[in-house]
Design a protein around this nucleic acid. Structure first.
Length: 783
DNA sequence: GCTACTCGGGG
DNA sequence: GTGTACGAGTAGC
């Protein structure tokens, strides 16, 4: 019997002769393998109930803990994983919805991407990889060989502005980028000096070649940018259309699409990571746009090839010499995707190891889900049973619950210079740990000794399950940060980041309606302590004569107002000395200028809506709507440019003149139609709409003209002059001639709302911008 | 005000 | 597959 080191990447199972066999796909020192493990029995826990169901094979009794109480629990074993949902109804069941492969990994203490020692024999079969029938799998400690990553990106033959339809539009290019692999496949000959170009005779050949190249490369990971929603389902759809057998999976299965709110593309045995989804999740709070170009600029300091994608359709039809550029564009996208995935892989690996989920799962999960899987894994160690997910009614009730959040010190709208930003790092985790806030430590009917909580408090005599978990996470993180200090190790950095992610998400998890360990009282207590601590810092800042501009939950913006940064840092040091335990205020940075705007219709400052200008000249924009697609280009452009001008302290007349100019160009019909076009997607069957918003009215008209409109079609329209509802004045771009757009609509409903709050800050009314007679005056400003 | 609907990313 | 997102903005009613 042979032994080998093995690092699982993906897990699946299949039923063989009435028994479930777990299949772990992953790396060995000799390449990819599939490790089959038989003999793990499906089971669930039960607090009450009995049944003589023949699917039950046996029942054991165990002592477990459940929400702070010791309980006797039945461990109910069944024949097949699919029996669990059928049998659990007869019991007061717990942990009866943990997927079988997941249960296997938790119980056997096998963590994906972590070394195991496998003892077993090679089995036959038709898989693309060697199959090992395992007799034993034990956790081990060896470093993983590098993961092989392959990035894929396709270009389709789609007329710009039209819906991208896999049933109509062929794939005309496909780029692959990996270690030692650079390839753009296409099926038209054109002049190009690109050594990575491979020309095939048809789209079918392109798809087949794609399959060959993937198989030859043997990726552990296939990545794409929005590949769940575009590239992989598209490739699958085209392959299906031509009845090409694209056996992408290591067991020769095709690409599978899981339909949900958002689709997920799966390939058996290969970890598919849609890096867009991961980027979006982890940078949700800090990035304004998630287009590949913006993300690549931000994270890689690289850009896409600058081409007019609108021209690809014609370039393909006419072979006008532009295709080479598009091939470069295609390659560059795959390269950027590869680099993003490579760069973020340490983070995905660490989240994988923490939660014990496969990287394809961990990379797609919301923070709440990551926390939950981490807690489920930890629960096993603590002999705790996981509570069930809420039923529909319970979930509804939870959704309706609201409570007081973080403290917000409202900004006074205006433009400020020299803004120092500080924040409480890990405010809520440190609060949870310090005050032992856990569902199993609540004492009802007793105020907390510090007077912060009324009607309940938290026991200090025993450590709560989740408080213990978070404390452990915080301490591990501190140790790793200490190690990372002198090492500049990317894995250590990623590990502390993953620990931080989990720690920071537990508060939100307590208040998340879908959570197993949901506890609104815990969530309320955490914010109460958070408010208590930050208010104290703010009042001390006032005592120290510092001008607090804005504060939201855990951050504080201070205007230097001539004070030196040293004085402010001195204050922070003083604050930190007085804060309990590991709580602390950190210096985030100094900004050249910052702008706060008012809430619509009031004079009070808007929360979570501001822009800062860094010392490097980069803007940090929060809460402004600069990137929404269903806003016309002219509105987006004007807002962003105005923000930039104001932050750079240009005189108000110049800003006003800039906006005024945009308004005038609209009025004098000099704005090109593509800048007033509004694009909106039709999301379902037209007849199922109860109301008729403008884009639906347009879609109905398009349908009447014989065009195919379905869920997913993007309609573009331009609002034209006339009376009545906007939907009656919306026209298709081709129906509108230059200058026929309704300037007043775009001024009042698009451009002005986008800049209105900014105008207030520089002391300019929207009338000054829109009134016609003022036009001359401002224009004359430039002589 | 409330409800219905769409946005994101991809070509 | 023993499991599936979300938070924010706008127009219409």
């Amino acid at each position: 019997m042979a032994k080998m080191m093995f690092w699982p990447v993906e897990a699946a199972y299949k039923v063989v002769e009435g028994r479930a066999v777990v299949e772990l796909y992953g790396k060995s020192r000799n390449g990819q393998v599939c490790v089959q493990a038989a003999g793990f029995e499906p089971y669930f826990w039960a607090l009450e109930g009995e049944s003589s169901d023949e699917r039950i094979t046996r029942i054991e009794e165990h002592t477990k803990k459940f929400l702070g109480k010791e309980v006797r629990a039945k461990k109910v074993f069944v024949k097949l994983p699919s029996d669990v949902p059928l049998v659990r109804e007869k019991f007061r069941a717990l942990e009866a919805d943990i997927p079988f492969t997941r249960r296997f990994l938790i119980d056997r203490k096998i963590t994906p991407l972590t070394c195991c020692e496998v003892e077993g024999e090679v089995a036959g079969g038709s898989y693309k990889v060697e199959v090992i029938r395992a007799a034993g799998i034990m956790p081990a400690e060896e470093e993983m060989p590098a993961l092989r990553i392959l990035a894929i990106d396709i270009e389709t033959h789609t007329k710009m502005g039209k819906e991208i339809l896999p049933e109509n539009d062929p794939i005309i290019m496909a780029a692959l980028y990996g270690e030692g692999l650079r390839k753009v496949l296409t099926w038209k000959h054109f002049d190009a000096k690109l050594d990575y170009l491979e020309v095939l005779n048809s789209e079918v050949e392109l798809i087949e070649r794609l399959g060959q190249l993937i198989e030859g490369y043997k990726p552990d990971i296939i990545t794409g940018y929005f590949s769940d929603g575009f590239d992989l389902p598209y490739i699958k759809a085209r392959a299906d259309k031509y009845k090409v057998q694209l056996k992408a999976g290591l067991d020769n299965s095709p690409i599978r699409m899981k339909k949900g709110q958002t689709p997920v593309a799966e390939i058996t045995g290969i970890s598919h990571i849609d890096i867009f989804k991961f980027v979006k999740r982890i940078f949700r709070a800090t990035m304004a746009s998630f287009r590949l170009n913006e993300v690549a600029k931000e994270l890689l300091n690289e850009e896409k090839v600058d081409v007019k994608l609108d021209n690809l359709f014609n370039a393909w039809n006419e072979q006008n010499g532009e295709l080479e550029k598009f091939a470069e564009y295609n390659m560059q996208d795959a390269k950027l995707t590869y680099k993003l995935c490579t760069k973020l892989m340490p983070n995905i690996i660490e989240l994988t190891k923490m939660t014990g989920l496969a990287p394809s799962d961990a990379s797609r999960m919301s923070f709440s889900q990551l926390v939950e899987w981490y807690l489920i894994k930890e629960a096993q160690e603590f002999n705790e049973l996981a509570p069930n997910k809420p039923e529909y009614r319970e979930e509804r009730a939870r959704r309706a619950e609201s409570y007081e959040g973080g403290y917000v010190h409202e900004p006074t709208p205006g433009l400020y210079r020299d803004v120092a930003v500080f924040d409480f790092r890990s405010l809520y985790p440190t609060v949870i740990s310090a005050h032992n806030i856990s569902p199993d430590t609540i004492i009802y009917g007793k105020d907390s000794e510090d007077g912060v909580l009324k009607g309940l408090s938290f026991s200090s005599s025993k450590k709560g399950f989740i408080a213990a978990v978070i404390e452990n996470v915080i301490q591990r993180r501190l140790r790793i940060k200490e190690l990372a200090k002198n090492s500049n190790d990317r894995m250590l950095e990623a590990r502390q980041q993953a620990l931080k992610t989990i720690a920071n998400s537990i508060y939100g998890y307590y208040g998340f309606f879908g959570a197993r360990w949901y506890n609104i009282d815990c969530a309320k207590a955490i914010t109460a302590y958070g408010r208590h601590h930050i208010k104290q810092v703010i009042s001390e800042a006032k005592e120290a004569n510092l001008s607090v501009l804005y504060s939201d939950t855990d951050s504080i913006f201070i205007a230097l107002n001539g004070k030196s940064i040293e004085e402010v840092l001195e204050f922070v040091k003083h604050v930190n000395e007085k804060l309990p335990g590991i709580m602390g205020l950190e210096y985030e940075g100094l900004y050249k200028s910052g702008i706060f705007v008012a809430t619509k219709g009031t004079e009070t400052g808007a929360k979570k809506k501001y822009a800062l200008l860094g010392g490097d000249g980069r803007m940090k924009i929060r809460g402004f709507e600069t990137v929404r697609r269903n806003l016309s280009q002219i509105a987006k452009e004007t807002q962003e440019k105005a923000l930039e001008m104001i932050l750079n302290s240009l005189p108000k007349e110049e800003v006003a003149a800039y906006i005024k100019n945009a308004v005038n160009l609209l009025r004098t019909k000099k704005i090109p139609l593509d800048k007033v076009m509004i694009r909106t997607q039709i999301s379902r069957e037209l007849r199922s709409y109860e109301n008729t918003p403008p884009h639906v009215a347009i879609a109905i008209r398009m349908q009447e003209r014989g065009e195919k409109i379905g869920a997913g079609t993007t309609v573009s329209y331009i609002v034209t002059e006339g009376k009545g509802a906007i939907r009656d004045r919306a026209r298709l771009p081709e129906e509108v001639k230059d200058g026929e757009y309704d300037a007043e609509y775009y001024i009042t409903n698009q451009v002005i709302p986008a800049v209105e709050r900014l105008l207030e800050v520089i002391g300019c009314t929207k009338e000054e911008i829109t009134e016609t007679y003022r036009q001359k005056k401002l224009e004359s400003y430039f002589g």
